[in-house]
Design a binder for these strands. Sequence first.
DNA 1: AAATAATATCATCTTGCCATGATATTTGCC
DNA 2: GGCAAATATCATGGCAAGATGATATTATTT
Lengths: 131, 131
Amino acid sequence: MWISSTARLAIHAVLRISEAEEHRLVSVEEVAAAIGCPRNYLSKTLYALAQAGILRSERGRGGGFQLAGRADRLTLARIIEPFEPAAERRCLLGRPMCGDADPCPAHERWKLVAERTKAFFQTTTIAQLQR
Amino acid sequence: MWISSTARLAIHAVLRISEAEEHRLVSVEEVAAAIGCPRNYLSKTLYALAQAGILRSERGRGGGFQLAGRADRLTLARIIEPFEPAAERRCLLGRPMCGDADPCPAHERWKLVAERTKAFFQTTTIAQLQR
DNA sequence: AAATAATATCATCTTGCCATGATATTTGCC
DNA sequence: GGCAAATATCATGGCAAGATGATATTATTT
């Protein structure tokens, strides 16, 4: 019922990186060891986050990842966005065209829950989760 | 971020069946046509719901499916339960042992949302969604 | 009894996500 | 320049869920 495991990994990793000292580059190896996940898989995930403008990366010796912006401006929604399927299903019954205008039987009730969940991801920032 | 597509199908199908006249048996064919889904896949899904005691089925000519109990006692939680993975992940960061005693950084905030969602499925009944 | 209509069940194919491993590229250090 | 450390990238494998198709079983109708 929840987010994909890659999206979970992304949040966890970004949180770890954000907890390092300011301006320090954190290596994939270090993050993988800290949160206990496969190194190469994490590498791909962090790269995707860099492509999305959430992380900054430096290659070569001494390289690594750091936040591209302020932690208090970085919402969970932005972090998981690259890993969620494009067709965001909002209808509980899976109807393609469910909306306020043409609602499915569960629309009104489900909307309350879905909106709350969405709001959680859109308002919670990495800064709020640190330490 | 939501439930599996089979679980969605199950809710949709049960709702349709529940909207038929009392004591009428509804065929797989009829439900499949109504909600637009693959016939055999729906067949397997309805069979699983019958095994779970949610539907009653009759084989042979004139057979079909009907609710096994009252619609106002049938929660969405019971319907989706057979189709959700056994290991229900409650921790947003995917930590295996996240709980009130040993919380992850997101635990308290996420708990509020997760509990609300859970409550939605546990309290919403098929009767409340009819027509 | 035979035909028919329906569910029950099994075998298999497909697809997408998760994961692994290997290689390429860049950068800093000696 | 050469080596080592790190990210970037590609190719591939594994697995579970989704989906399809074929067959078995049961019950009704004729």
